[in-house]
Structures are given as structure tokens and as C-alpha cells.
Design a protein around this nucleic acid. Structure first.
Lengths: 340, 340
DNA sequence: CTGTTAGCGCCTTCAT
DNA sequence: ATGAAGGCGCTAACAG
């Protein structure tokens, strides 16, 4: 049973050296004679000693902890991204401190305040609206290194895909398949920067294809999405294709279609966005824009770690736009003859 | 612009009091005269002062951080649980430090070691095998408060549902629907305590129904599950119902069935386990055992927090078995006449 | 009710 | 190459 005060002095005493030497063994092994080093390592090993993280943080002003601010883990996109963040952080010797904000700006601010007080070395966040975020302003003022994930904004360092181009590509492909009535479905547009990017891309794509864009189908509450979508699909005029701002909505759209008696993709083509892992194992498999969610997290961590090491926060110029992939799935096909 | 040393003394100076008083305002507001308290609060507010977490932790030996050890966030069950943990932790003034272990016992040990060194106040874990876990032994030796989630074991405090009873119930219901050929599908059995519980329940249920249990269908790799299951379904004799040890496998089984030309549920009834949120919006909606994933996380946090407050780790007797619900979904129906 | 004092465990000059 | 000393920011006794 180890004595209660399992600190650096105790190890030092056992190894017959000073506390400073023990500290060096853990931080700069090269600065200690091999023999002494072995002695100390041995003592530490036997005692099961590990340097106290708080004391080390207090002294060095570096916590080796990264804060993570995400809307929710109920959307697999963010769960997958967090998994990537967690793995990359661990690989780089960092721990993570995640906080969920429910797409709420007020909670984003609180999360940032909490993480600032916790003394994290950097933060990765996905926020509602980067352009006017108080939370981001606070980070910048504090000189805290941070990276945005999934957001896209010229004034901030972002890891993302070009959502606008991807959305435009979706529309182009649908148009090429003969679809002329293509509607877009999203959650509350103002609550998500992502949805806005994608909507812009949708509009651009429609214009490029010479098609008229019907009004955006906004579905505020996830829980009632199927119901709302069913109502929408029963009302005329009905589109032949639906572009959904995320995969969760696409899945619910497919259900709504089936409940309404529409066959997917024959009567209604459905395309999602995100590339959540599960989507490819559904039946029909989901046609979507696949994002490298894991890598978005990983690159975020790496960018942050590099910035921390070199001592200056990431800048907008460090932004990374990763490649996306149009994943053709069974939920999307050419428009049926009768409807064309 | 706040001065660099934004510490308790700086606030104290500005409020014209001592550091101790500032500390008291943050920790025991009642022990300070209302007037002084307001003065200090004002000063802190203006400066944007927040007590330094590391210093506080070093001094009090309490970090107000909870460690979380989970296999992966790629399975929505754990993502949903973590969401519950995160919310409950925040509500109780705790931060969380999650670590993912990929169902690997070696990584479970590393995670525990890391969390121990980080000085967390308690831990919530879902491990592969509670009975012989070195990681749990280490926690117990260290006197670290911990709770298991999803695991079930008489020697440890667990938050879970009765997976065995639930599995038995599934079999009973399938039998009542006329199914006589009921097979069970799982991942690597040894990698998951949950799968083992459910398999025991399956066997018990089969025995109770007077049915013979065919060999367990073990699908080691998630990525190749659809392929393996398709092969299995094409080979005779084919079951009329499939009980899957989790929802992810159930979803893949449904896909495998369709690829094989089998209609679900007419030709093959499929039942899952977990109750991941997305399952009810699929088509067919998934028949499953719904677990309160969010609440499992929440109760884990609450049990831990209570134990920490009272100063003694949770005991096996504190285990909580939450209610599960058989969620009838469209993926399961009575056996077809021809096959009966 | 408030101030003084000491030290949590560690790292980091500065000396030797 | 190693040791001695001071202080990171905070809280908990103890005085007053």
C-alpha cells in the first residue's frame, strides 16, 4: 500500500536524490545521468508514482487538455468527429474536455467560459454562427488557440468541407438525373451555419441548372420531423427529389415518404449530407455527401497542437477544406418517366 | 484589456479586501457580509475573473472532473450515454474526461491509469469483462469511486438494465408470434459483457419456449458484417427470426436480408437491442429492446456525485437496474403461414 | 466578519 | 550533473 503523500519528494527520498532530479527524469530525461535516471525510474515504478497533473499545470501554465464544444452527440456526425478528436488527442498526449451546447448560442458562451476557467490549452468548436459569435470573440481576446469544425468563415481557422460546393454538386447531379422539382429540407436555418452553407449551394445549383427553387422546407423540431415531412409530401405540388441538409433529416424523409405511400427512390429521390457511418447500411442505402468526420476531428487536433507548440494561435489562413465525396446510394435515382 | 496576472489577489486589491475574502465569496458566499460580497462580485465581474481550476484542485484535492471510459462513440448507444453523462455532469458542476478503448482490455487499463494520474474525482466505465478486469482492480485498490455502465456484475456498482431478462423476453415474444427457428447474432462474444448477458437470456428463453437453439452467429468485424450475414442467410437451414445483440447488427442484418432477397419481416423477423434513437425512424422501424441510454449516463453521474459528496465510493449494493422496454417495430411480425 | 499565514506538488532559475 | 529555494493560485486554519 503506497503512503498517502505519493509526491515527488517521496520518490526522491527513495531514490536517494533531490526532488529536482526526479522532476528532470520525467521532463528532460537527457539532462540526467543514465545511472541516476534508472534509479529514479525504478523508484517511481515501484511506488506507482505519476506526476500530479494539477500541480504541473499550475506551475507550467499548460494543462495538456483540449476543450471541445459541440452541439450534441445525438447526431452521429458529431459523435464520429469527437471520436476522431479523442483518438488524435490521445495520440498527441492531450486529454479532452467536451461540452455540449444544444445549438444554443447562450450555451456556447457558457461552455467557452467554463473551458477558459478550466485552463485548457486550446479549443475545437462547432458553433451556430461564427460571424457574430460572442464566444469566439472572447476566445480571440483571451488569445486562446482555437479551431472551428464544420463551420466555414474567412475570419476564423476552420476545418471543414466546402459545403456550398457540395450542395451545388448534389443539385447538379439530381438535375442530370432528370429531376426538375428539387426541394431542400433543413432544420432551423438560423441555428446552423452548416445548413446555411448548404442552402446557398442549393440555390446556386438550382440557378446553374436553370431551375426554380421552391421555398425551403424548414423542420424546426427533430422529434416531429417525420410528421411534418409527411404533411409536406402529401400536399401538392410534390417534388421528385429532396435534398436534406443532413443525414438524420434524410432518414426521416425516407420514412415520411414511405408512410405517405411513396417509393424511394422511384417516386421520390432523397439525398442527405454528412456521411454518417450507419447511412450506408440502411435499406435503401443513403445517397449523401460523405464528409471525413473522423479526419475533421483529427486535423483540428493536429492544427491546435502545432499552434500550441509554436506558441501562436491558429489563424484564419490555416483553415483546411477537406475533400468530400458524393456517395451514390440507393435512395437516389433518375426521375421516373411519368413524372419527368 | 485585463492585466496578465488575473488572480485572486488582483481581484482582492481592486475590491479593497484580502484574497481570503474573495475566495470565500466564491466558495462560501454566506460567510461574507452582503455588502462585501457585492463589492467583490462587482470587481470579479468587471475583471472577468474566474478561479483557476488547477490551483483549486491542487489545494483541495478535488478536481470536479469525472473520467469516462467507453468502447467507442461510433456506436450510438455510447454516444447517447455520453450525452447523458455530459449533461448530468454539467448540471452537477462537474466536467468530464472521456477516453475510448475500442473494446480492448489493454486500452481499458491505460485509460484508467491516465485518468488516475489526471486526478479525476470518480469514473464511469463500460468495460469488456468486469469479472477479471485489471483496470477495475486498480480502481478499487486506489479507492477511486467508480460506476460501471451497461455492465452487470454482483461485485461492482452497475447502472444497467437486466439484459438477460430482456433477451429472454424477446425470445418469448418471438415464440408467441409462432417463430420456432430463432437464431442469435452477435459480435465477438468475449469482447462484450453485454453480448454475453444477452446470449444467456437468449438461451434461457429458448429453453423456456421448448425450442432448440441453433449455434450463435458470431460476426467478428463490423465492417464485414453485412457480407457475413448475407452468406449466413443464403445457407440452409435459414431461421425465421433473428435476435441481434445490438441495433447496429440488426440494421446490418436487415440489409443482408434484403440483399439476399428476403423481405423483412415477412421472410425474416429481426429484433435488435439498445434502442438507439435513430432506430425508430428507419423503414422498417426497428423492433428492439429500448434502453434508457441517456438515463444510464445520468444515473451513473448522480451515483458518483453522491458518493463523492459523502466521501465513500459507490458499492455493489448501489447498483441500479433501470427498466427496459420491448419496442415493437415493423422489423418483426408473426411467422408467415408457409414457414410455420 | 475579515485578514494573516502556510502549504497543496511541481518546475525552474541559480548555484555548486 | 545535481541540489536548494521560491512561487504558480488557491483555500483552510487560526487569529483578531
Amino acid at each position: 500500500m503506497p503512503k498517502d503523500p505519493l509526491n515527488i519528494h517521496y520518490v526522491a527520498a527513495r531514490a536517494g536524490v533531490s526532488a529536482a532530479t526526479v522532476s528532470r527524469v520525467f521532463n528532460f530525461p537527457d539532462k540526467v545521468a543514465p545511472a541516476t535516471r534508472a534509479l529514479v525510474a525504478q523508484a517511481a515504478q515501484e511506488l506507482g508514482y505519476q506526476p500530479n497533473a494539477s500541480a504541473r499545470t499550475l506551475r507550467t501554465q499548460r494543462s495538456r487538455v483540449l476543450g471541445v464544444v459541440l452541439p450534441t452527440l445525438l447526431n452521429p456526425v458529431f459523435a464520429e468527429c469527437l471520436q476522431g478528436i479523442a483518438l488524435a488527442a490521445a495520440a498527441n498526449g492531450y486529454a479532452i474536455l467536451p461540452v455540449m451546447t444544444s445549438y444554443d448560442e447562450e450555451q456556447e458562451q457558457q461552455a467557452v467560459a467554463q473551458l477558459l476557467a478550466a485552463g485548457v490549452d486550446g479549443m475545437i468548436l462547432a458553433v451556430s454562427s461564427p460571424s457574430d459569435s460572442k464566444a469566439l470573440a472572447r476566445l480571440r481576446d483571451a488569445g486562446m488557440p482555437y479551431v472551428l469544425a464544420y463551420n466555414a468563415h474567412p475570419a476564423h481557422p476552420c476545418i471543414s468541407v466546402d459545403g456550398e460546393a457540395a450542395a451545388a454538386e448534389v443539385v447538379a447531379r439530381l438535375a442530370a438525373l432528370g429531376h426538375r422539382h428539387i426541394a431542400m429540407v433543413s432544420g432551423t436555418l438560423t441555428a446552423s451555419d452548416r445548413a446555411q452553407q448548404r442552402y446557398r449551394g442549393y440555390l446556386r445549383g438550382m440557378a446553374a441548372a436553370g431551375l426554380q427553387a421552391p421555398p425551403l422546407v424548414e423542420v424546426p423540431f427533430v422529434t416531429t420531423a417525420v410528421e411534418a415531412l409527411s404533411r409536406y409530401l402529401r400536399a401538392a405540388p410534390r417534388p421528385t427529389a429532396l435534398f436534406c441538409s443532413n443525414d438524420l433529416l434524410a432518414i426521416r424523409s425516407i420514412r415520411a415518404a414511405r408512410l405517405t405511400g411513396l417509393a424511394v427512390p422511384q417516386d421520390l429521390a432523397v439525398v442527405g449530407f454528412d456521411g454518417i457511418t450507419i447511412a450506408q447500411d440502411l435499406t435503401p442505402s443513403l445517397c449523401t455527401i460523405a464528409q471525413p468526420n473522423h479526419d475533421i476531428g483529427r486535423h483540428g487536433v493536429e492544427l491546435l497542437v502545432q499552434a500550441i507548440d509554436r506558441g501562436s494561435p491558429p489563424a484564419a489562413g490555416d483553415s483546411l477544406y477537406l475533400p468530400y465525396r458524393f456517395e451514390s446510394g440507393e435512395s437516389c435515382s433518375a426521375v421516373a418517366e411519368a413524372a419527368a
